[in-house]
């Protein structure tokens, strides 16, 4: 095996140079030119101040805002420095009691019937803990409460939710979804810039 040592070490060094430095530098260079905003985290700014990433969810709880999915990140929800799902198994009693509590909370908060079925994404923790989206059903369900809190017609809230909605790719792949942060910025009338 001694005869193989030189090629192994030289190949490792070459690969580190080519695939570990030149390749990522090339991708970084092209991405910076072609997609400067995306390459640096799709950050939304107001007067130069970053108010979030278009791709990361934020925690909301106020009545005037659209409220996103439960987040299992620690120590605080939607912790961008430490993505995590709950990893609760399907028959874990802890999952059962968490979901029941969330269902009760949503029914009370949105003034729904005590036996109303709640869209699954609104009462289950996302995989990343940073999910920026809600299903259209989970978003529309909150429109009357947001409208009441803001004193505006439900229809104008629904209109904003539609503006914050993205379709399936080619109408086929993935799911329709409402970006929670975008909907809330629109509701607040905050004008954001998407320059890098």
């Amino acid at each position: 095996m001694r005869e193989q040592l030189r090629p192994a070490v030289v190949l490792l060094a070459l690969m580190t140079l080519v695939t570990g430095a030149i390749y990522p530098a090339l991708v970084t260079g092209i991405a910076r030119l072609a997609f400067p905003w995306q390459a640096t985290g799709s950050v939304l700014t107001v007067g130069g101040r970053a108010v979030g990433s278009a791709l990361l969810g934020q925690p909301f709880s106020g009545d005037r805002h659209l409220i996103g999915r439960p987040s299992a990140t620690g120590p605080v929800p939607y912790n961008g420095a430490s993505s995590s799902g709950s990893n609760l198994g399907p028959v874990n009693p802890a999952l059962d009691s968490l979901v029941r509590a969330r269902v009760a909370l949503v029914r009370a908060r949105e003034g729904l019937a005590p036996d109303a079925r709640i869209p699954a994404d609104l009462v289950t923790a996302s995989g990343s803990g940073l999910d920026p989206h809600l299903s259209p059903a989970a978003a529309a369900l909150q429109a009357p409460r947001i409208a009441r809190a803001r004193g505006i017609p439900v229809d104008s809230v629904l209109g904003i939710l539609r503006r914050a909605e993205a379709p399936r790719w080619l109408g086929l792949v993935g799911e329709r979804r409402v970006t929670v942060l975008r909907a809330n910025l629109l509701l607040d009338g905050t004008v954001v810039q998407t320059s890098p």
């Binding site: 999915r69 799902g85 709950s86 990893n87 609760l88 399907p90 999952l95 979901v99 869209p119 699954a120 994404d121 289950t124 923790a125 996302s126 995989g127 990343s128 999910d131 989206h133 809600l134 299903s135 259209p136 059903a137 989970a138 529309a140 993205a166 993935g174 799911e175 329709r176 979804r177």
Partner: peptide, 16 residues
């Protein structure tokens, strides 16, 4: 069409 539903625990809304 407006919600994937099912077992969404640990899944992302954009993927369903």
């Amino acid at each position: 069409d407006d919600a994937p539903n099912g077992n969404m625990e640990g899944k992302e809304a954009r993927f369903g």
